[in-house]
Design a protein around this nucleic acid. Sequence first.
DNA 1: AAGTGGTCTAGACCACCTC
DNA 2: AGGTGGTCTAGACCACTTG
Lengths: 233, 233
Amino acid sequence: MSEGERLSWTEVRDRIHGMILDSTYMPGDKLPRDEDLARSFGCARSTVHRAMGALSESGIVERRRKGGTTVRADPVTRATLDIPVTRREIEAKGMVHSYRLIQKSMQMIPDAVAEGLGLPAPRAMLRVEALHLADSAPYIFEDRWVCAQTVPEILHVDLERESANEWLVHNRPYSRCDVRLYAHKADHKDAARLSVEIGDALLIIERATWIGANPITSVRATTMPGYQLLTGS
Amino acid sequence: MSEGERLSWTEVRDRIHGMILDSTYMPGDKLPRDEDLARSFGCARSTVHRAMGALSESGIVERRRKGGTTVRADPVTRATLDIPVTRREIEAKGMVHSYRLIQKSMQMIPDAVAEGLGLPAPRAMLRVEALHLADSAPYIFEDRWVCAQTVPEILHVDLERESANEWLVHNRPYSRCDVRLYAHKADHKDAARLSVEIGDALLIIERATWIGANPITSVRATTMPGYQLLTGS
DNA sequence: AAGTGGTCTAGACCACCTC
DNA sequence: AGGTGGTCTAGACCACTTG
């Protein structure tokens, strides 16, 4: 053995990953204890621990106290999506963002929204419908419910000037966010709001956010035909 | 101050997060150095470092050597999707999975596939078209290209019995995976393959994987109407 | 009950990047 | 050039969980 160099945790991670890739350890197999790996690599146990943490987060490996570390038998494709603030997203594409408030008013939330936010009882919230435009063409239509109990300030924000999307993101960080993605066939309402053909396939991005146990907002974002979500860099 | 208890890194993380949530530090603001925070919390610097690592991964905070730690000015919604092996996904819903190989043959890859895999030159790959069924009803249609240069064994796998999806996942771990999501309007081919109506809105999941710099596979998975992708727990 | 990963500490040095 | 986060170590103790 006799390594001249000390190993970094990324090297340790890659070596362990490599032994999984080359079938030294197969899905379901148990890996050696951290301490033994550390000795065999000639590094500290915490370095192996750091490497294992990364492999575990990637879903490559599963760790349990006393149970040891095993190669995941059923790997999943783990994809991380970054959904930026709409204005930023449009500007990042080199286009000009504009924004139009369609309507806002207090309304009782539909059951679907209540369920998505985990609320048992019906409740009134501020409903905000708005359209984001890129270079003056419709880009995303937002149908949003904001919980006025959790975020009373929203009632005094000038939503003609600043989108609820942006105001919330800058003023109301959340502690939890659920996302739901699906395809939707444009109906006559979508066609009117987004200037698309009835029957076009649209990607819908639904999000619900909370601060602690309190609901903040639930949004249904309807994107233009051709819109794509990409992972990674 | 005088804490009786030692702080865990999660408590440190939550306290720092809390100071961001309650506007002690606003987006764009610089946080104190790790060492100072550690002293003020009465813990070791590495504990603060661990907490900051978590906040940084969540996209709440940005860290730079010498530049210090700042609250992210433009937060993104960071969502992690787990896309399981199709058979598992169906079984997890309590349904019976079955699978039908439609065709496989060596073909030159279209430009779109070559581009998705980052390949400059055209190349022949194994094309596999297959249908996954849940309780005998179509569930996902897979149009897949497998690189026979990277994965020569695929040519000898009995793809009538085991789906390429499953074989690859269990035998060919990848080091990189790109995902692309969008909505697609069913054409007559989709209608025939999935038994849906022409014009239905379908969610498409495209994935490309590599091992090191070598392409493994590129898949276009067409889902049934109503299919949804959800994040997190 | 014992073994394994998880955490915390204290200190040292390194690498990057802004100032 | 100096300050900041990033990493590594060595050791101790803890918490979970399985045999």
